[in-house]
Design a protein around this nucleic acid. Structure first.
Length: 109
DNA sequence: CGGCTGACTCTGG
DNA sequence: TCCAGAGCCAGCC
């Protein structure tokens, strides 16, 4: 699907494009994004997020790990900031700090 | 060209 | 349910 849109575009650009397609109030996992982009794994998606500039228009906060939790690089915290951004968009967290994929999942199956 | 690193995921204990 | 180890691919020395 998305693969047809970009063919000779850098891999990072593909990942960013897919992430931009995530509607507000919904989230996707690294694995799902990797599957949509194809030809890359969840690790690559995570690395693509890691190199994102601060002034990017990519809603990187809508990308979380497969366990429904927010993952940030080893730099430390910021996940709290993350959670607040998502809650602003209407994403609900349970008492364990996880999101409910049945409610906000983008490409669930 | 080769090795190291990383915002992950899966499996087993 | 939580923790540890192995596999994975692209980018950057």
């Amino acid at each position: 699907m998305f693969k047809d849109s970009f063919q000779n575009v850098p891999l990072y650009q593909r990942i960013y494009t897919v992430v931009r397609h995530i509607p507000p109030g919904q989230v996707a996992t690294y694995g799902q994004v990797a599957r949509i982009v194809g030809r890359c794994t969840a690790r690559v998606v995570g690395y693509a997020m890691a190199v994102l500039p601060c002034d990017t228009d990519v809603p990187w906060h809508r990308v979380i790990n497969g366990q429904g939790r927010i993952s940030l690089r080893t730099s430390g915290n910021g996940s709290t900031e993350e959670r607040r951004l998502l809650e602003t968009e209407g994403v609900c967290f349970n008492h364990q700090g996880r999101v409910d994929f049945n409610e906000v999942g983008w490409f669930r199956q």
